[in-house]
């Protein structure tokens, strides 16, 4: 998702790039259609979110078979228990939360079979070596330094960075999915997770 075409970025000075259209609450509309009984909407939701859900599940568990079962169960429930499903304005967050819960529940079942959930969630990331900007400031040396620092981050810090940078979750959503106490602790954890930047960049 982040290996994107540099042209999508707005230059800081000069001509403005055509902005993306803001589709306000298209999520709510699709979701409501599904809740009202539309199977087409159900399939559209499945098609749109499967890849993101799958990748997220594997990052949490490191276990493809478990994730397949988990996604099956999540959508099975959504289809069978439709009347009970509440509204949402973020389908992705809704599905992520459901899947995480399923996976944690089944992980306790799996532990009996000595295949426990991955304790070091795989939220690894690194600094892309690509030339992204004309006036770039992060050289090869800094990049390597950053990559070494990133490897040292605790799993929890990697996880919050993933939600915030990669999935674009809000602080409220991040707080909830990570089971943190309040928004303030969530912000603080994010801030601390980025402490390494102070030492690596200047």
């Amino acid at each position: 998702m982040f290996k994107q075409n540099p042209s999508r970025f707005t230059p800081l000075e000069g001509v403005a790039v055509p902005a993306r259209e803001v589709t306000v609450s298209s999520d709510s509309r699709l979701w409501d259609a599904y809740r009202k009984g539309s199977d087409a909407a159900f399939v559209e939701i499945y098609e749109s979110y499967f890849d993101a859900l799958y990748a997220y599940g594997v990052r949490i568990t490191g276990n493809h078979a478990m994730v397949k079962d988990g996604i099956h169960e999540v959508f099975f429930d959504l289809r069978e228990l439709r009347p009970k499903v509440g509204p949402t304005d973020s389908i992705k967050f809704y599905l992520f939360t459901c899947l995480k819960r399923k996976l944690y529940r089944s992980s306790s079942r799996w532990e009996g079979r000595r295949q426990s959930i991955d304790p070091n969630c795989n939220f690894e990331f690194s600094m892309s070596p690509e030339q992204l900007l004309i006036d770039q400031q992060i050289g090869e040396e800094e990049r390597e330094k950053l990559n070494r620092a990133i490897e040292q981050l605790s799993p929890r810090k990697k996880e919050i960075i993933y939600y915030f940078f990669y999935e674009g979750l809000t602080y409220e959503q991040t707080q909830e999915i990570m089971g943190l106490e309040n928004i303030k602790t969530t912000r603080n954890l994010m801030y601390k997770a980025l402490n390494f930047l102070r030492d690596c960049l200047r």
Binding site: A55, R59, H64, Y166
Partner: peptide, 14 residues
Amino acid sequence: REFLMRVQYNEIRA
């Protein structure tokens, strides 16, 4: 901005 643009995750696909 440059840091954020360089953040990359490995791709996971079914």
